[in-house]
Design a protein around this nucleic acid. Structure first.
Length: 521
RNA sequence: GAUCUCGUAGCUCAGCUGGUAGAGCACUUGACUUUUAAUCAAGGUGUCCUGGGUUCGAAUCCCAGCGGGAUCACCA
């Protein structure tokens, strides 16, 4: 049921707090005064708060030299009424600026209603207003807009949490409840400036990456989200149904196989910021939908990809944070290229003292037992090595490190290593103990690819529910011929967490997944 | 999915071994023409998450449920 101005000021069965009732009464009074609380016409904004404060100029005597005719719009965020004059704070998209409002300036004639009634009584914190006026500096030194005209642009019917700050920047009564913040991100953004900064930073990071790729000839593309075979990764998919075709479709878990088809088609470098969906657990590093940047470049190998990845991340850090030494929790991560390169066998040796390179499946199981790592029968040699690395070594790679040359069993889309038997040309990039990227020299031999898919089928039969499905059309594409190619997937949310110094994925997603809220009707 | 933990006013929170609800800010009324966590005077806000139970009596104890967070499992 929608609220409409006029007579239905309350909604039946809706619990309104005292403050909400008062705001609706104010709305009625505004209407009675002939003031439209939601006027349709555009408001001419001439400047933003931050810009005015940054570029305001005055002469030696303190006489303002510019911004003598400005108009701004935003939310009213604080009020300090002192009789016939008041101070208020206006918050626009750039930040806050103080307003000075004197009765006789906004209501110069006999009728003081605009000040005494409308401004002092009928406006609330959170209302959108537009003001005209001129800039000056108060006795206390605050750059302020002396308001000569004021207009209500949109009434707010719910009280925003009021967050206060003292001179030292201490915050009082912060709006901190994570559930409320995520469910009502609009409120979070309105009252918590640092939240907004995080998201601006994330967008900056994405722009920096996009620019890097475009400058080098990357072509941004879109590929299907609805896929009939959820390929390119190993994960439980979301399933949906197409009515007209009467067939199931899966929301993509990766876009890898589609980007490779485009390389087959003759593009040299394609990339996509891919929203992927995985029907798995949620926690502070996992959201059911998340973003991976994947890109594929023809005539390259994984060595080239390492060079490119470190250059990309160095630039992304520089443009996002203004430095390559990024504070992450209590650590400084140095994004400056080059990054250390360690084979997975050496990484395991480094942290366990064990050389697993020559071990067969039985030996690996024995080692797992010794290291107190749980295993099950579905695990093959590759999976066991991956498990050992994950349990013993992964968390120790704080500074960006390429872990290279994985066992062939766990990399069905990767080309076999040019001179290390049993391994593939693959690397994962570890930062702050977490995987941030995964890249290969891509497997482009269709015969080998078919065999690898068949290996996956065997793993699946053995009980590995992460094994990949065979995508016959993808095999057909490879049979037409794919040039030697290197490809990578970079976890954009994970990278954003690092560059924004946030330790949960929810803090870098505007609307993280939550259990749906129940509204009572 | 398992374990632990939290849920009290618009916001942040207090509320003891059970005795019938509190503070600051916000809000309402009034004063104040350069304030800034404005100040001063006055006012009282509530499904104590929901439903059961124990009890003369439950925000408090017990059980179940709902929602959040943390840890674990799965995964990126």
């Amino acid at each position: 049921m929608f609220f409409s101005t006029g007579n239905k000021l309350t909604i039946p069965n809706m619990h309104l707090s005292e403050q909400e009732i008062i705001r609706r009464e104010k709305l009625e009074k505004l209407l009675a005064l002939g003031i439209d609380p939601y006027p349709p016409e555009a408001f001419p904004v001439s400047i933003h708060a931050a810009h005015l404060k940054e570029f305001f100029e005055e002469d030696a005597e303190g006489k303002p030299l510019n911004f003598q005719e400005v108009s701004l719009a935003g939310r009213l965020m604080s009020f300090r009424v002192m009789g016939k004059a008041s101070f208020a704070e206006l918050q626009d998209s750039s930040g806050r600026i103080q307003l000075y409002i004197s009765r006789d300036d906004i209501a110069p004639g006999e009728d003081k209603t605009l000040y005494n009634e409308v401004f002092k009584k009928l406006l609330d914190l959170g209302d959108f207003i537009g003001v005209q006026g001129y800039a000056f500096r108060t006795q206390v030194g605050e750059i302020t807009v002396h308001v000569t005209g004021l207009k209500l642009l949109a009434k707010s019917l719910r009280p925003l949490p009021v967050v206060k700050r003292d001179e030292e920047g201490h915050i009082f009564d912060a709006f901190t409840d994570t559930e409320e913040r995520y469910r009502m991100r609009y409120v979070d953004l309105a009252v918590n400036p640092h939240v907004k900064e995080t998201f601006i930073k994330r967008t900056k990071m994405v722009s920096a990456i996009r620019r890097f790729l475009n400058e080098r000839g990357g072509l941004e593309v879109d590929t299907p989200v609805l896929q009939s075979i959820p390929g390119g990764a190993a994960a439980r998919p979301f399933i949906t149904h197409h009515n007209a075709l009467d067939v199931p479709f899966y929301l993509r878990i990766a876009n890898e196989l589609y980007l490779k088809r485009l390389i087959v088609g003759g593009f040299d470098w394609v990339y996509e910021f891919s929203r992927n969906f995985r029907n798995e657990g949620m926690d502070r590093t996992h959201n059911p939908e998340f973003t991976i940047l994947e890109f594929y470049v023809a005539y390259k190998d994984y060595f080239w990809m390492m060079d490119t990845t470190e250059a990309l991340l160095e630039q992304a850090a520089m443009e996002t944070c203004g430095t390559t030494d990024v504070q992450v929790g209590d650590k400084i991560i140095n994004f400056k290229a080059p990054y250390r390169r360690v084979s997975i066998y050496d990484a395991i040796k480094e942290h366990t003292g064990e050389d697993v390179s020559g071990m067969d499946e039985a030996a690996l199981r024995t080692l797992c037992k010794k290291l107190h790592i749980e295993t099950d029968d579905s695990m093959g040699r590759g999976k066991l090595i991956d498990e050992i690395f994950g349990e013993t070594a992964e968390r120790h790679f704080i500074q960006p490190t390429f872990i290279t040359d994985y066992p062939v069993e766990m990399s069905p889309l990767t080309k076999k290593h040019r001179d290390k038997p049993g391994l593939v040309e693959r690397f994962e990039l570890m930062i702050n103990g977490k995987e941030v990227a995964n890249a290969y020299t891509e497997l482009n031999d269709p015969i080998d690819q078919r065999e690898r898919f068949e290996e996956q089928v065997k793993l699946m039969e053995r009980g590995d529910d992460e094994a990949m499905f065979i995508d016959h059309d993808f095999l057909r594409a490879l049979e037409y011929g794919m040039p030697p190619t290197s490809g990578i997937g970079i976890g954009i949310d994970r990278l954003a967490m690092l560059l924004c110094n946030q330790h949960t994925i929810q803090e870098v997603l505007f609307f993280p997944q939550m259990r749906p809220e129940k509204f009572e009707e």
